[in-house]
Design a protein around this nucleic acid. Structure first.
Length: 710
DNA sequence: GACCTGCTGCGGGCTG
């Protein structure tokens, strides 16, 4: 039987009326699977390949929406995506007389109230809104969701291996507990590397099936190399970039918000001068939400005019922005999976191959960029998801949430609930007890006779509006022009009266700064500096660094490189030819210069961090340059260094002591975790160890590496 | 050498 015939009559009518001649591969597979079983499914395929319909066509065919209670829950990582998908799902449901309700912080509260009085149909929600419901109105969760049949999780890859994902996994389990009969889960995802983790996310790996649409899109790739001079992009690069993008619909990804502004403003200036199109925008988290919505709307609805959006990962996820002809990446991405997301945003027209242009501004970035491209296109490599096996900080959060939701709960019952939750399945009971005891000790929890309740100190935390999310955000200054919010900026040396800055693809002069209300008043200006933001670097997988070394030691000529890129690689190869390298897997390079040593490790960020800590412990004076994966080592001879190097493995078993000392030195290191500071010290150390270090890989690295000298 | 994400409940003021 054909997949189409499995659908219910009204859904078939919908498909025919839309004029769809045939179902996509992913849709046919999903329909056959979902119609025939109540198993969980992961549907993986490119952006805009009809995944939403792949999930909803069979679910709408299968369920009886006359039943009371919400039947389908759709969970999205973004409010913007909920608003997007609402229109599509509502269109589908109009035929079937099913009510669809948006439920997030900005959604209409009258609609929400109507749903609570008469729960039915489909609800679109964020993880944080679900959390809030569990904390404040657990009775509502029971009333609304105890007859739930399906939960659809959009962009499920964005939850894998993240704190927010652990939170969602925990919430899903808590919801399963109030449900009469377990609901099924359908995860929608872009193509990812780690389907095992995606399957485990449903809480029932063996009853979860993955459907993948692997049909690859043809890509035309071009590399351009323009060495930058210091902080700003070279004028040659900008001119080339302008010519490359002026007649297309383009997304440019420059890896940082400051540079996104620099590019948008400078390309617009060139365009103004030569009478090109005026549609240059920037899109990132510091651009006001309404401004961003305008940009998205423009891209989606102007079919004839070209545009250029200079953006960060805000445009990586699946917000619908219509057709994009070309993707430009400035310098290497931090991961292959991010690279895949960005490439996937182009070439929606099926008849044309996607166009990808990779600019590099530094020799190491050029090398990394080539490595990423080869790993993606030849080796089909994607980083595995790095799981936090024991997410103690999320355990703190969920413990507080469960206690607050229950008002009071027996300690044994709380421990049992946490232990049965798949989000914490790797955490031992003694560890859960340790966390809860510490929360009791710091008055976040309190014993009231036989029960546990929220303690004095915990009240402030759980009653705050900020409690529902597990990630941290800083308070920034609002940038305002003539009463309109342009965006926001962190406080820095730049924020001063009379200074000129770039924001939202425009140039502004700061007229006044109000530190009290955190507002900056601006007027338009003619020239200015790119804004400064703060952030620590990303983490590069060892495989990318190994590929960089492989390219360096090889002699293949790449036909996708331009002349200057070709010359730069040639020069790099010449520089490294002083080493007689035999084995790319195990040989690493020690360059002996006059007064210092350069150790090129060609390994991942976490191993480098671990090596740095070990160097510090044994008193090797060093500085780490992550971009080239190189340690600059001084005040020691090569021979002394090598004999100390041999002793490093024996310090690894005491990593917790070393990390503990480092944490005492700089408590600020815990800042990455919103709830980590409420853990006992030994668990804080474990959290830090998992986040910034990799003792297992470092042990292996130290044991297998052979150091080659020049 | 970084990027991103979300938000209750209540009270007061205003509009229709």
């Amino acid at each position: 039987m054909k997949a189409f015939d499995l659908l219910s009559a009204p859904v078939r009518k919908f498909v025919r009326n839309r004029g769809w001649h045939e179902l996509r591969k992913i849709q046919a597979a999903a329909i056959t699977g979902i119609m025939s079983s109540d198993d969980n499914y992961i549907l993986a395929s490119r952006t805009a390949s009809g995944k939403t319909e792949a999930a909803f066509l069979p679910v709408l065919s299968k369920l009886n929406f006359e039943e009371t209670g919400v039947q389908v829950l759709y969970i999205s990582p973004l409010v913007a995506l909920i608003n997007d998908q609402f229109l599509r799902i509502e269109e589908l449901c109009k035929y079937l007389n099913i009510r669809v309700t948006k439920w997030h912080g900005e959604a209409n509260s009258a609609q929400k109230n109507r749903l609570t009085r008469n729960p039915e149909g489909i609800v679109l929600i964020t993880p944080e809104s679900l959390e809030a419901m569990l904390v404040n109105k657990p009775f509502l969760v029971k009333g609304m969701f105890s007859n739930l049949k399906y939960t659809v999780i959009d962009e499920i890859h964005s939850f894998l291996g993240t704190d927010r994902g652990t939170q969602l996994k925990s919430i899903l389990h808590r919801m399963q507990c109030v449900n009469a009969k377990p609901f099924s889960i359908i995860g929608l995802s872009a193509t990812i590397g780690d389907y095992g983790e995606a399957k485990r996310f449903t809480g029932n790996e063996s009853k979860t099936t993955v459907f993948r649409d692997t049909s690859a899109k043809e890509i035309n790739v071009l590399f351009r190399y323009f060495k930058d001079n210091g902080d700003e992009l070279s004028i040659e690069l900008l001119k080339d970039l302008y010519m490359e993008t002026k007649d297309r619909k383009v997304l440019i990804f420059p890896n940082s918000r400051g540079r996104a502004e620099e590019i948008a403003v400078k390309l617009k200036k060139i365009s103004d001068r030569v009478d090109g199109h005026p549609n240059y925008f920037s899109h990132h988290s510091s651009v006001d939400r309404e401004v961003r919505e305008y940009v998205e709307h423009f891209a989606k609805n102007n079919h004839r005019e070209n545009f250029c959006i200079s953006c960060t990962s805000t445009l990586e996820l699946g917000i619908d922005i219509g057709t994009v002809d070309e993707i430009v990446q400035i310098d290497a991405t931090y991961s292959i999976s991010s690279f895949i997301q960005r490439v996937g945003r182009s070439g929606r027209k099926d008849d044309r191959p996607a166009r990808l242009c990779l600019y590099a501004t530094d020799k190491w970035d050029l090398l990394q960029s080539i490595a990423c491209w080869l790993l993606y296109s030849r080796d089909m490599f994607v980083e595995p998801v790095k799981m936090q096996e024991k997410p103690y900080d999320i355990l703190v959060h969920q413990s507080l949430s469960i206690v607050k939701g229950n008002s009071e709960i027996k300690l044994k019952s709380l421990i049992r609930q946490l232990k049965n939750n798949p989000a914490f399945s790797q955490t031992e009971i003694v560890e859960i007890e340790q966390v809860l005891n510490h929360l009791l000790k710091i008055d976040f929890l309190e014993k009231a006779e036989q029960d546990i309740i929220i303690g004095i100190e915990g009240e402030n935390i759980v009653n705050s509006r900020n409690f529902y999310s597990v990630f941290k955000t800083e308070k920034n200054f609002k940038v305002i022009h003539a009463g309109n919010t342009i965006g926001e900026l962190p406080f820095s040396f730049q924020i001063a009266e009379g200074a000129n800055i770039l924001l939202a693809a425009r140039i502004w002069k700061i007229r006044s700064v109000d530190s009290e209300s955190k507002k900056i008043d601006v007027i338009p200006a003619k020239d200015g500096k790119k804004p400064v933001f703060f952030g620590s670097g990303g983490s590069i997988h060892p495989k990318i660094r190994e590929k960089m070394l492989e390219i360096l030691c090889g002699d293949e000529e790449y036909d996708f490189l331009d002349r200057s890129g070709h010359d730069e690689i040639k020069q790099l190869r010449r520089d490294f030819s002083v080493f007689n390298l035999q084995n790319i897997q195990t040989d690493r390079l020690l360059f002996k210069a006059e007064n210092h040593l350069c150790l090129f490790t060609f390994t991942g960020t976490l191993v480098n961090h671990t090596l740095k800590l070990l160097f510090d412990v044994v008193g090797i004076k060093n500085e780490l340059y992550e971009q080239s994966s190189m340690f600059d080592i001084s005040d020691i001879s090569a021979d002394d260094f090598l004999s100390k190097w041999k002793t490093l493995p024996k310090y690894l078993p005491d990593m917790n002591v070393h990390i503990g000392n480092s944490l005492k030195d700089k408590p600020i290191q815990m800042d990455f975790s919103k709830y980590g500071v409420y853990l006992p010290e030994n668990l804080q150390i474990e959290l830090l160890k998992n986040k910034y270090f990799d003792t297992g890989q470092t042990d292996l690295f130290l044991k297998t590496t052979k150091i080659i000298e020049n």
